[in-house]
């Protein structure tokens, strides 16, 4: 029997990371699509960084930022009692940062695709900004948002480099499927590697297939 822990951990980490990606990503996507502000270009470039910098570099940044040596790490540990580095939570942070741009991009495009006059029409009919977002913008952009969520989730399940740097490779604690695959190959356990690779491949293929089917517009 193979150890199912990496599968369980991967799903848990990915769900939590995607949850944060959607919440924070929606705010960012909306800001990017609908507001003009100072430093917008810088923020945009910053969010998109994980797409282009090497995952190990990303992992290193996170390690430094969240470790005890940084003010943020110390604040989290001393004041809130949260230790992140080399726990499953660090894997969540790594997966979140890596998947965020993949959510923001389609979500932003989807929000930009909503006719501004529809939002204005809603405002003219007496609705608050929150009402407009809830009843007009998100319902009309939901395909893009859903597609972004699925792609973000898939990216989270495949996160390797940054996770290894910041959460490490601790079997039964921080070992996700991608890390378990690496581990299995290192150990010469080809059988296990094949099974895990099969799971990931099937999953990744289905994600893209369904996202493509799904995003064919209706309106």
């Amino acid at each position: 029997m193979i150890d199912l822990f990496p599968l369980y951990l991967t799903l848990k980490v990915s769900f939590v990371a995607t949850f944060f990606s959607i919440i924070i990503g929606l705010c960012l996507a909306w800001l990017m699509a609908r507001r003009e502000f100072y430093g917008k270009g810088v923020l945009d470039a910053l969010i998109m960084q994980p797409l282009v910098i090497p995952p190990t570099v990303l992992g290193y940044y996170l390690l430094v930022l969240l470790g005890r040596a940084s003010p943020l790490g110390r604040f989290l540990e001393d004041t809130l009692g949260i230790t992140l580095v080399f726990t499953w939570k660090a894997a969540v942070v790594a997966a979140f940062v890596a998947s965020l741009p993949l959510f923001v991009r389609p979500a932003r495009a989807a929000i930009e695709g909503v006719d501004k006059n529809l939002e204005n029409a809603a405002r003219l009919l007496g609705k608050t900004e929150w009402d407009v977002l809830k009843t007009i913008t998100i319902p009309l952009a939901w395909r893009g948002i859903a597609a972004g969520s699925i792609i973000a989730f898939a990216r989270a399940t495949g996160e390797f480099g940054a996770t290894l740097m910041v959460a490490g490779n601790i079997p039964g604690i921080t070992q996700t499927i991608p890390i378990a695959i690496y581990d299995a190959v290192q150990m010469g356990n080809t059988n296990l590697a094949n099974i895990l690779v099969g799971i990931i491949t099937l999953f990744s293929f289905s994600v893209i297939y369904f996202v493509n089917r799904f995003t064919k517009g209706r309106y």
């Binding site: 006059n117 529809l118 204005n120 029409a121 809603a122 405002r123 003219l124 007496g126």
Partner: peptide, 16 residues
């Protein structure tokens, strides 16, 4: 805008 009570019929109607 929401408190102005202005009825505005857009050229393309802007139906939801």
């Amino acid at each position: 805008i929401r408190d102005r009570k202005i009825g505005y019929l857009f050229q393309d109607y802007a139906l939801f």
